[in-house]
Design a protein around this nucleic acid. Structure first.
Lengths: 134, 134
DNA sequence: CAGCATCCAGCATGATACTG
DNA sequence: CAGTATCATGCTGGATGCTG
């Protein structure tokens, strides 16, 4: 096998088989978090989500919902009426997923100032602007 | 402001100004987690990381390290010797970032079986395979 | 050793038009 | 209403060659 032997390290953190990577690749999609967040407030119809998330294309919304459904994070319920009525809701698994995401969000929000100061320092170091006064 | 009023929702979760999105976009990069994980074990030189992560191109490794440096997650120390010697290390902030990431990793690893069962069910529902025996 | 600059391929995303 | 199908594109990421 091609595993790194000299260390107990990543091995295949980016392998398609790495669970973290699989899930991370999904939630890092542009719309996934928006959808999950929306559904945390309750069941919604396609159009509800579409209007709420505002900016998402039909293609992307559908794609995101399908991926979430495939992973068991949301349920899709079709009411065979006219006009059609499709409702999306989070599963328990989906609500569980929301927790670590929220943890990450909170950590980030707590430290965003620190991060932005670091960025400012970095930018300045790269881009030595004329010290406004010698 | 352009914030959604009718709900306390996403507002601009995908806006460039959303902290969560900013950080998520970074850690969702193919190599960021690998680099952070590696550096959790201690200071490393460029080549150490390059060899350890194995599969990363120079471009991507450099790019990833620069982004992490810009955000204040790693320090880059250049020893002006010949040949050059550059050492990378996690900052406290970087170690802090590792925690929510680890939390996500753990949640995923705990639930990956459930996710994969959901996927199997979904695939089957989409792709009604001939029931091996009528 | 530790990069940077350039070129290129593929996929993710997005806009548009059409359908049950 | 809730999608599907197609086309266009922009950016991510990888390969290659050069430098202090």
């Amino acid at each position: 096998m091609t595993t790194v032997e000299s260390s107990g390290l990543p091995a295949d953190v980016y392998s398609a088989k790495c669970p973290t990577r699989q899930v991370l690749d999904h939630i890092s999609g542009k719309w996934t978090i928006l959808v999950v967040d929306s559904l945390l407030e309750g069941t919604m119809r396609y159009t509800d989500l579409s209007r709420r998330i505002e900016g998402v294309s039909q293609k992307m919304l559908t794609q995101t919902l399908r991926a979430l459904e495939a992973d068991g994070f949301v349920t899709r319920t079709v009411h065979p009426t006219i006009p059609p009525r499709v409702e999306y809701a989070l599963t328990d698994l989906g609500r569980g997923l929301a927790e670590p995401i929220t943890a990450l969000r909170r950590w980030t929000e707590t430290h965003i100032n620190e991060i932005e100061r670091a960025r400012a320092r970095f930018a300045e170091a790269q881009n030595p602007p004329p010290p406004s006064r010698a």
